[in-house]
């Protein structure tokens, strides 16, 4: 990091990690380093500012495109406990569907990777399920399974599980042939081959699928709420738009995005803590 400050006496910030450039390099590089660090936040702030300005300058009505400030105001106008109620309803369904998908997908992937017959039999069916537009099936599922969390969890599950299955199968089959031969030469048995070699080898694939699936799980929960719900952020957005409370709907959207991002980060953190070896060296 900041290894020597002797070359540039005017730099009186010996303890900061913020500017990892050599102090002797001058103001230009410091600025560049600062830009490199804050450019994403700056760009985001700039986009918001342009948006805000545009709504004022062109006098866009808030039911067409509310200004960011209006969205924040609408968000604050809704009481916190109402927010929490909706967030919890959506999060609960998303997480249950997500966990169910993991619980089903991983064993299913092991079965598909282990048996050619099984994979030839089941794969076409899985592709059909995956190819069915979930938004179109959702109302049918709600009618079939009744008005409870169950249909919502099932819808979330259906949209989430396929990427996990496909990635895990790819991972299980990407194991080097030599390791399988090593396993067989030790006569360790099929279950140990899967547990000790194939599954760990599938972890990097599994983790990337789990990351993608967090977003899908939130989508699934919201789609389910669009069809039938009396709580949840999807319901909140639908409800708000039906009363032309567009800033509130946008606020709901912002919360949804925040949930998706948080879940995504959470999986990333879990990967760092539980299976750091699956990350590239630079990200450990």
């Amino acid at each position: 990091m900041s290894d020597t400050t002797a070359a540039a006496p005017e730099t009186t910030l010996p303890e900061t990690d913020a500017a990892p450039t050599a102090p002797a390099a001058g103001v230009g590089t410091t600025l560049l380093a600062w830009l490199d660090r804050f450019a994403p936040a700056l760009a985001f702030a700039a986009a918001l500012a342009v948006w805000e300005a545009a709504t004022w300058v062109f006098a866009i009505p808030s039911f067409l495109l509310p200004a960011p400030s209006a969205i924040v105001a609408a968000g604050l106008a809704t009481p916190a406990e109402v927010w929490l109620g909706h967030i919890w309803a959506t999060l609960r369904v998303a997480l249950m569907g997500y966990l169910l998908a993991i619980a089903v997908s991983v064993p299913l992937a092991v079965a598909l990777a282990s048996s050619r017959l099984l994979s030839r039999t089941l794969y076409p069916m899985l592709v059909v399920v995956q190819s069915t537009p979930i938004v179109a099936v959702a109302p049918i599922i709600v009618v079939t399974l009744g008005a409870s969390d169950l249909p919502r969890v099932v819808i979330t599950f259906l949209i989430t599980f396929f990427p996990i299955v496909v990635s895990t199968v790819t991972g299980l089959l990407s194991t080097p042939e030599e390791l399988i031969e090593l396993s067989r030469s030790l006569r360790a048995g099929r279950s140990r081959e899967i547990l000790h070699i194939r599954l760990p080898y599938a972890v990097p694939h599994l983790v990337s699928a789990l990351k993608i699936s967090t977003t899908l799980a939130v989508i699934g929960a919201v789609v389910a709420e669009f069809v039938a719900a009396e709580r949840g952020l999807g319901f909140f957005i639908l409800f708000s738009t039906s009363f032309f409370k567009i800033p509130a709907a946008f606020a709901g959207l912002v919360v949804l995005v925040a949930i998706s991002l948080a879940l995504f980060r959470l999986v990333g953190l879990a990967q760092k803590m539980l299976v750091p070896w699956s990350l590239p060296k630079s990200e450990r």
Binding site: P176, V203, S278
Partner: peptide, 10 residues
Amino acid sequence: VFQRPTLLPW
């Protein structure tokens, strides 16, 4: 001993 070391990264 195989051509590639094929060690286990975990």
